[in-house]
């Protein structure tokens, strides 16, 4: 019953996310609304962390396999992508590395500078 209760809470929040997506005219997915609502519920103690923790950790652990079906679907997009694949691929590779390095270095720089100031 423990898992069933936990899953029920998680799916209910997902449902609320879906409702918000249907009502609000923004291109924000149900999952992001749901994440924000869940965080608010946890912060306000409407939901206690141990009421969802086990099921949450399970879902997070198996998250990578959820990306397999949409990624396999790439083979369907291939005809559209083929003529522009090389420049698009280069853009994707370069900007992904760029964003990763810039975000990481800037964050690390500010954290470490802040740490030094306090000392």
């Amino acid at each position: 019953m423990r898992y069933l209760k936990q899953f029920t809470i998680i799916l209910l929040i997902s449902l609320v996310g879906e409702i918000l997506k249907a009502v609000l005219p923004l291109p924000i997915p149900a999952s992001v609304y749901g994440l924000i609502i869940m965080l608010i519920c946890l912060c306000t103690k409407v939901i206690r962390i141990n009421q969802i923790k086990d099921a949450s950790l399970f879902l997070i652990e198996i998250m990578p396999v959820m990306f397999i079906p949409p990624a396999v679907g790439l083979s369907d997009a291939w005809p559209t992508l083929k003529p522009i694949f090389i420049p698009v691929f280069i853009t994707v590779v370069v900007t992904t590395i760029l964003v990763m390095v810039v975000t990481g270095r800037v964050t690390q720089f500010v954290i470490r500078r802040g740490g030094n100031n306090k000392q």
Partner: peptide, 14 residues
């Protein structure tokens, strides 16, 4: 499998 993506994302709040 992808059906679980929304609930899993919600769980990232934990």
């Amino acid at each position: 499998l992808s059906y679980l993506l929304t609930p899993a994302t919600v769980c990232l709040a934990v």
